[in-house]
Deep mutational scan, measured.
Amino acid sequence: QKPVSAYALFFRDTQAAIKGQNPNATFGEVSKIVASMWDSLGEEQKQVYKRKTEAAKKEYLKALAAYR
């Protein structure tokens, strides 16, 4: 399975908490809140997710090379 983006990892980590705080929110509303949070996130915090994405990408490429 291809690795997901840094934003997708952040979304996955954040979505449940947002939904818990806003139980009646639609998926679209939750998405807007998470997107706003991502935009206001500091670069250092974004780097945490970007590093996770890079590590997953390297593992994916290694597994793909081994498969071929």
Rank of each mutant, 00 (worst) to 15 (best):
K46E: 00
N24V: 02
W38Y: 07
W38L: 00
T26L: 02
F27Y: 13
A17P: 03
F11T: 07
K52L: 03
A66S: 13
A8F: 05
G28I: 10
P23N: 06
K32I: 04
L9K: 04
Y67V: 15
A35Q: 12
S36L: 04
E43A: 10
V4P: 12
D13V: 04
Y67T: 15
W38A: 00
F27A: 15
S31G: 06
L41T: 05
A8T: 07
Q45E: 14
Q21I: 04
Q15T: 09
A65M: 13
E59L: 04
Q45S: 09
Q45M: 04
V34D: 02
A8W: 06
R68Y: 05
F27M: 12
V30H: 01
T14S: 14
I18N: 01
L61M: 08
R51V: 10
K46I: 04
R68V: 04
K57E: 13
A16Y: 02
K62A: 11
A35H: 12
A63E: 15
Y7K: 11
A6P: 13
F10S: 06
M37A: 10
A66N: 14
N24T: 13
S5V: 01
T53K: 12
V30S: 02
A8G: 07
Q1T: 12
V4T: 10
I33N: 05
A6I: 01
L64T: 15
N24K: 12
K2C: 03
K52R: 12
G20F: 10
K46N: 01
A17R: 14
G20E: 14
Y7M: 08
V4M: 15
V30F: 01
K52G: 03
K57S: 11
Q47D: 13
A65N: 14
K52N: 08
K58C: 10
D13L: 02
A25R: 10
L41Q: 01
S40L: 06
L61V: 14
P3Y: 05
S36K: 13
K57D: 13
A16F: 08
T53Q: 12
S31M: 09
L64N: 15
V30I: 12
Q1I: 11
I33F: 03
M37E: 09
Q47Y: 13
K50A: 08
Y7P: 03
D13N: 03
T53W: 08
E44C: 12
V34N: 02
M37G: 03
F10Y: 13
A35M: 06
T53F: 15
S31I: 02
L9A: 11
I33R: 08
A16E: 15
